Computed example of a mutant assay.
Amino acid sequence: MDYILRSIYQERASQPETLGVILVNKREDQINLTDTFDTILLIIVKEAQLPIFTKHYCYENHKVAMHVITEQLLNKWIYIGKNRRIVDWVFHGKVMFERNEYLSNLKMELEDFSYYGRKIKAGIQFAKLLRSYTEGKEFFQRGDHLDAYHHVVKSLQYLARLSIIENGLYPEVTVWSQVKKLEPSVYKLYEELVTSRESIEKRLELLFLAIEFSMNSKVQSCSEHIMEIMQSKELWTIQDLHNHQELKFYSVELELFIEFLIEKGYIIVERIHSKNESIDHRLYRINDTLK
């Protein structure tokens, strides 16, 4: 089978922008890991006109999906955790080609999960937790308990990933099996949500309190990444923050995170006069007293 597939990726492997080629075969216990395809060919390139390009093939009774993705998109998925299958593919896939040990080094980085990488990912996961929590709390206060339940499940998943990150590991597809071993208290919260005999309203009320407590205990460590970036200059506009290369990973959660850090005293709002005397510009700086 490798011989047949080699004809698909060999030409791309010879191109200088190609960094690596990974082959992933379907596992019977996890067929959704490959979107039910028998084989995935993941080709990572330095740059391309499209961040992701996909083709489907078939031979005999086998179906194959080829994904060509840029290094920038791969890094975005790794930091944001939006496509967790990618991490599994990198960890467990068969390396068919790599340039200058690119994939070997990438695997080592994921396994080591450097302190700086943990700070970025923790910040992003916390911002997503904050979004899910605040939206869920609004649904709960309006009496929309099923919508609130959905957001609590999402919040617990982000909390679970944070717990894994804090233990120096990378969140994999099987997050809850990781959490059960590393942070039983977080796993217990999930169990209480889905197995408790209390009314859904009571369960949600207790879970919102527990999540809020966890968020307050993690805010300092999870804001380290953004606070270190903001130390590089005194004042920031919101557009300055959006334009920063690493803060782009926070996407639509960035402004909510900034407002939360203002509420907690980590960031201070500075009012600067504008041309219109009745309105000021709103700029941001870190609270020096918390350094």
Rank of each mutant, 00 (worst) to 15 (best):
K119E: 02
L5I: 00
M108F: 14
G93T: 02
L159S: 05
R84S: 08
A160N: 06
N167R: 14
N276A: 11
V153C: 03
F97N: 10
N75A: 12
K82Y: 09
F257N: 01
K180V: 07
V64H: 01
R6T: 13
L189V: 14
H273M: 15
W89N: 13
K275Y: 06
L74T: 02
S274I: 07
F53C: 14
R131V: 12
G265M: 01
C58L: 06
Q220I: 14
T174K: 12
W77P: 12
Y102V: 06
F37T: 04
H281Q: 11
L193N: 01
L110C: 07
E17L: 12
L235Q: 04
D38K: 00
Q245F: 15
L193C: 04
E166N: 13
I8Q: 01
V179A: 08
R6G: 13
N216F: 07
D88A: 12
I78L: 15
S251Q: 03
M96W: 03
R282T: 15
S278Q: 14
D38F: 00
R161F: 09
Y190A: 12
L5W: 02
L156E: 03
V24N: 02
T289R: 14
D38I: 00
V173F: 13
G20Y: 04
I4S: 02
E135L: 12
V179Y: 11
N276C: 06
E183Q: 15
N216G: 09
T195S: 13
R84Y: 06
F260D: 10
S104Y: 14
W89F: 10
K248W: 06
V153R: 09
E60V: 00
I211Y: 06
Q245L: 13
S132D: 12
W236F: 04
V68E: 13
H281K: 11
A122K: 08
S199T: 14
E224G: 05
I268Q: 08
L169S: 10
I44P: 02
Y133E: 00
G265N: 01
